[in-house]
């Protein structure tokens, strides 16, 4: 086996520089969860590995406008963002604390999580409902894209050649989140389906903003846009929530796999969305 070159940048600038010079030969390594599993399964044979763990990309910055998650921030750090108990931080904590177990949350990073393949990657669903953006750095500079644009499905993304994810930016807007994770087992094991909802209501209780995302019912988690539009301006009563669940399931494109049938995933998508919306109405 050929020796793999290990590149250990000490800053983002150096990381971008090394990535550009490696012209496609380097695999980016952050926490190692996907890269190590892929390497030992024989699916990944990189000539070089660019390790981001020493590039200063870990950390959480919170302002009134946004929560900025450095790309190599471990999911455990997100799971600890539960205070205050509402808003975007609590939403991230609720979803991150249910990814794998502590050992996985310690190692897995938020940046790496954007590249993980189904059936894993269920925190992506919550990030979509929070309208997260992905901050990218390349030789040409910095840009931001919405996560919805970034994800292409099955672990593919719109990341350009020579570009790195440096942060995930989550708007700190008013509202409440709800999250539903359906799985066969607790702890280890993939989710069958995840649903995340973000709801902001006016003083009369009518829905001002609704964002709904569903994971596990297609090649990538998707925004249930028709369900979102149907809720705006309405009181979130049982009828409205059930209708939103049904509309969200209509947009699903599930397939049969080892864990569940397409039929089951579509059925459960409707129920999970309804529950997530109910949970998102806040106290």
């Amino acid at each position: 086996m050929a020796n793999i070159e290990l590149l250990r940048p000490r800053s983002v600038d150096e990381a971008v520089d090394l990535l550009e010079r490696s012209v496609g030969a380097a695999t980016v390594l952050a926490g190692g969860v996907d890269v190590m599993a892929g390497y030992y399964a024989g699916l990944l044979r990189p000539r070089a590995v660019l390790y981001l763990g020493e590039a200063g990309l870990s950390g959480v910055q919170t302002t009134a406008q946004a929560i900025t998650l450095g790309a190599t921030t471990p999911l455990l750090r997100l799971a600890e963002l539960g205070q205050p108990s509402n808003g975007a931080g609590a939403a991230l904590a609720a979803a991150a604390s249910r990814v794998g177990t502590r050992a996985i949350q310690i190692q897995a990073t938020i940046g790496g999580h954007l590249f993980t393949r189904p059936p894993y990657g269920d925190l992506q669903t919550m990030l979509l409902a929070l309208d997260a953006r992905v901050r990218l750095r390349g030789a040409a500079g910095e840009r931001e894209v919405s996560l919805d644009t970034f994800l292409r499905g099955n672990g593919e993304t719109t990341l350009g050649p020579g570009e790195l994810v440096t942060a995930v930016v989550v708007p700190n807007a008013p509202g409440h989140a709800g999250y539903e994770r359906i799985a066969l087992t607790r702890g280890i094991g993939p989710a069958l389906l995840t649903a995340a909802a973000w709801v902001d209501r006016d003083a009369d209780g009518r829905c001002r903003v609704a964002r709904i995302a569903v994971g596990g019912a297609g090649p990538r988690p998707y925004r249930a846009t028709r369900a979102e539009q149907a809720l705006v301006g309405r009181a979130l009563d049982d009828v409205a929530l059930r209708e939103a669940g049904a509309l969200a399931a209509e947009q699903a494109s599930p397939s049969d796999d080892t864990f569940a049938s397409a039929w089951y995933r579509r059925k459960v998508a409707a129920v999970a969305v309804e529950r997530a919306l109910r949970a998102a109405q806040g106290a």
Partner: peptide, 14 residues
């Protein structure tokens, strides 16, 4: 073959 000739690159690590 080296992809990046730099002090940051290592193949065998102690």
């Amino acid at each position: 073959m080296s992809v990046a000739t730099t002090p940051a690159a290592q193949t065998e690590l102690v």
